[in-house]
């Protein structure tokens, strides 16, 4: 058997805005042993419908199977699998950094500038900022902060995604 290549996929779901829908989707992932790397959900542009974006990892066949299983859920209206080459995928992270001394303070501020971060709250003891980008960019920034031993806390939004160009994933 040839080892099949595993890669990352983003699954975008348009679902009816009912209680328990997220539980059904998450339950399906857990029950069938699929991997969920991030999960985001909020209202969509259409009334009564929510959009859920799930980042997952697997072979092409596995992702196809997830797509089919999602389609079977009654409250799931549409399912689309996106990949980085045909879509815009972004994540937002809120990060709290501790300031130890002037030197680290300077380093932190220059790094924030390099990564196009935006400071939201700051005082002499800490900086709270936001960074928007793909997950790898956020990972890279967090790695640096970890190495500098200044990372206090992070809250990440998970991925949101849209198809590139005028095409849209949903109904019309």
């Amino acid at each position: 058997m040839v080892m099949e290549s595993v890669s990352e996929y983003v699954i975008v779901l348009l679902v009816e805005d009912h209680p328990g829908v997220t539980m059904k989707i998450a339950g399906m992932f857990a029950r069938r042993g699929h991997n969920m790397k991030s999960f985001t959900g909020a209202q969509s542009e259409q009334k009564g419908l929510s959009k859920i974006v799930i980042k997952t990892e697997g072979t092409k066949e596995q992702v196809e199977q997830i797509q089919k299983q999602m389609n079977k859920l009654i409250e799931v209206v549409k399912v689309q699998v996106l990949q980085p080459d045909n879509s815009v995928i972004r994540e937002l992270a809120l990060i709290k950094l501790l300031i130890k001394d002037d030197l680290t303070h300077q380093k932190i501020l220059s790094m924030i500038e390099i990564y196009h971060g935006k400071v939201l709250d700051a005082n002499l003891k800490q900086v709270t900022l936001e960074i928007v980008g793909n997950s790898e960019k956020i990972d890279a920034f967090l790695d640096i902060m970890r190495n500098m031993n200044v990372l206090r806390e992070v809250s990440r939004s998970g991925n949101v995604a849209l198809l590139r160009g005028t095409e849209s994933v949903f109904l019309h």
Binding site: G20, M23, K24, G27, M28, R31, I74
Partner: peptide, 14 residues
């Protein structure tokens, strides 16, 4: 029962 029957029904309602 909604939670309990989720994985073993085609659909469920409360």
């Amino acid at each position: 029962l909604i939670g309990s029957t989720m994985a073993i029904t085609k659909h469920n309602y409360l």
